[in-house]
């Protein structure tokens, strides 16, 4: 195919669950011979940090299934009705939920966010950090992985205007 398709993504969230869509789509698009740029803004910027530390917060995700990744099938299928009073107040609850989500993903043969991000970097996905949000949050470029470029809304729009797919995550 001679005309290369292009995909422009905005990654605006930094939690573990929302870290997946941009990296899954970007790595797959490149595998489908597309050219990809991801614009990381607001909380999405944290996905560019050298040490990824994305977590999930079940109390802000009412539809998130709370299941255990181990034990017999009947146990794994139980949805634990954990009240917000507990999930939002119990210290360490998010860490436990994050560990459980990572375990579940692993047991289902899903790549880690780090793996997918590495593939994106290796395969030439262009990663752009939003300069304005970096200033607001006090992030510096040396906190990010190598190869990140910086820019603003115009940088994204210039690429997006020529892109066949544009998605906001």
């Amino acid at each position: 195919m001679s005309d290369t398709k292009k995909m422009a993504l905005i990654a605006s969230r930094g939690t573990l669950d929302w870290a997946y869509p941009p990296f899954i789509l970007a790595s797959t698009a490149v595998a489908m011979d597309m050219e990809v740029q991801i614009f990381f803004t607001f909380y999405g910027l944290t996905l560019l940090k050298k040490k990824l530390d994305a977590k999930v917060a079940p109390h802000s995700n009412p539809s998130m299934p709370m299941k255990m990744p181990f034990g017999p099938k009947s146990f794994k299928n139980i949805e634990w009705p954990i009240p917000n009073l507990i999930s939002s107040n119990l210290p360490g609850f998010n860490d436990v939920a994050t560990t459980l989500m990572k375990k579940t993903f692993k047991s289902k043969g899903v790549a880690t966010v780090e793996q997918l991000r590495d593939i994106c970097v290796e395969s030439g996905v262009k990663l752009v950090g939003c300069q304005m949000t970096m200033d607001v949050f006090g992030f510096t470029k040396d906190e990010f992985i190598d190869g990140v470029e910086l820019g603003g809304a115009a940088t994204f729009l210039e690429f997006a205007a020529e892109a066949d797919i544009q998605l906001f995550v």
Binding site: I24, S27, T28, A31, M32, K108, G109, V110, A111, L116, I119
Partner: peptide, 14 residues
């Protein structure tokens, strides 16, 4: 075998 989306595609491409 045992791999989930998008790994089969990414590995096939490689």
């Amino acid at each position: 075998r045992g791999l989930n989306c998008p790994l089969p595609i990414l590995k096939t491409k490689k």
